[in-house]
Simulated assay, not measured.
Amino acid sequence: MDALAEVEFLARSKNRVALLRLLATGRYDRGELATEVDVSQATLGRILEDFEERSWIRHEGDGYVATATGRLVATGIGELLDTLAAEQTLRGVVRYLPTHAMDFDLRRLADAAITTPSRSRPSAPLQTALDLADTATDLRAFSHTFNEQSLATVHDRVTSGEQTFAGVFSRQAYTALADDEEVWQRTLALIDAPNAELRVREEGIPLAVTLSDDRVNLLLRDEEGLLQAALETTDAAVLAWAGETFDHYWRTATEVDRETASRLETTGQSPRE
């Protein structure tokens, strides 16, 4: 049988997939297999017979274990399932993903929470970032924008001593903040706060990410800059990527102090000039 036929053979029964993946982890007897996968002995017997015909499993003592090729197939079908799970999660927002800047396996987003706007909750994606900012004790951010609501939440948490904050933003983000005097004064207060540090990156930042010790939030915008979705995950690999990416932008950015802020506000001059 060709490879597609074997994929079809496995795909027709979730019990086949579950049993093969289980047997790839070690030896199990028939009773343990029936309990773990919740199948009848008759169904179990047919599946084991099919697996033995394909040399995917072998007897070992009074139990069964996957062969080398059985483990290979189990790994392959597991990776395919992970791929399809991630694709289903991301299908509705893939057009907004800045994948050129997301240096990790997209399958790590299979369990991510996706929040999109609705008629009753048009600001739902932004609220996920605000919720993270409102609960984290140690918050980092890198973004091409820093909106008024996020700034207000971080400002209140930082100035009350409940949060430490490190943020690196594009120059355009600071220019936008300076357009409103009240917002700019709040920005200056954040710059002055001892437990906050802001930097500006001249080369720009193609992402809008906030992260704490256990969560990453990514805001997704369309080509016109309109917020279309938020993606949130606790996956360890994505957390590591976000931390490393923050460190890169931080190293290649300039500290924003009062003097730098004044130049950004009044002239749009590069802080390196």
Rank of each mutant, 00 (worst) to 15 (best):
L22W: 02
V39L: 11
L231H: 05
Q228G: 13
Y96L: 02
R272C: 09
A74G: 08
D213F: 00
S150K: 06
Y96V: 02
A74K: 01
L220D: 04
L207D: 15
S212I: 05
D50I: 01
T135L: 04
D247M: 02
E181F: 13
M102F: 14
D179Y: 00
I77Y: 07
Q163D: 08
P98G: 08
T159G: 07
V183F: 01
L10F: 14
D235L: 02
T99A: 14
L219G: 05
Q269F: 01
Q269M: 09
R157L: 01
D222A: 07
G45H: 12
E203A: 12
D156N: 10
E182D: 12
F169C: 07
A141S: 15
A196M: 11
N147L: 15
T254S: 15
R199D: 00
V93W: 05
A133K: 04
L33V: 14
S40C: 04
L130D: 01
L239S: 05
H100G: 09
W184N: 03
A74N: 07
L23E: 09
A3S: 10
R263C: 01
T116A: 11
A34R: 14
E79P: 06
A173D: 04
Y64P: 03
Q149M: 13
Q172A: 15
G225F: 01
L22A: 11
R46W: 11
Q172K: 12
L264G: 02
A133I: 00
R95G: 09
P271E: 12
E53W: 06
R186D: 06
T67S: 14
